[in-house]
Simulated scan of single mutants.
Amino acid sequence: MHPEPAEAATRTSTRSTSGERRTQSFVENVSLIAGREITMRLRSKAFLISTGVLMLAVLASVMLGSIFGSQSDVPKVAAVAGATDVVESNAALDVVPAADQDAAEQLLRDGDVEAIVAPAASQPLGIVVFGLDQAPTSVVSALSVTPTVELLDPGAVDPTIAYLVAFGFGIVFFMSAITFGTTIAQSVVEEKQTRVVEILLSTVSARALLTGKVIGNSVLAFGQIVAIAALATLGLLLTGQRVLLGGLGSSVIWFVVFFAIGFVMLAALFAATAALVSRAEDIGSVTTPVTMLVMIPYFLVIFFNSNPTVLAIMSYVPFSAPVGMPMRVFLGTAQWWEPFVSLAILLATAALAVWIGERMYRNSLLKTGSRVPWGEALRG
Rank of each mutant, 00 (worst) to 15 (best):
H2S: 15
A6N: 11
E7D: 15
T12M: 15
R21L: 14
T23I: 12
F26V: 06
N29F: 02
N29G: 15
I33E: 08
E37F: 07
I38H: 11
I38Q: 11
M40R: 12
K45D: 10
F47H: 12
V53C: 12
L59A: 15
A60S: 12
I67A: 12
S72D: 15
A83K: 05
T84H: 13
T84S: 15
S89P: 08
A91S: 14
D100F: 04
R109S: 10
G111A: 06
V113N: 05
P119I: 00
P124L: 06
L125C: 07
V129L: 06
S138R: 04
L143C: 01
S144I: 02
T146M: 08
A156Y: 05
D158I: 10
A166K: 03
F167S: 04
F169I: 06
I171R: 05
T182Q: 13
T182S: 15
T182H: 12
K192V: 07
K192Q: 09
V196M: 14
I199R: 01
L200F: 12
L201D: 06
F222S: 11
G223D: 10
V226L: 11
V226G: 14
L234T: 10
G240P: 06
L245G: 15
G247R: 02
S250G: 10
S251V: 01
A267V: 00
L269M: 09
A274H: 00
A280S: 15
T287G: 05
M295N: 00
F299T: 02
F303H: 03
N305P: 09
S306Y: 10
T309L: 14
V317F: 09
L331N: 09
A334T: 01
A334L: 02
V341P: 09
A353D: 02
R359S: 05
S370T: 11
V372G: 01
G375W: 09
E376Q: 14
E376S: 13
G380K: 06
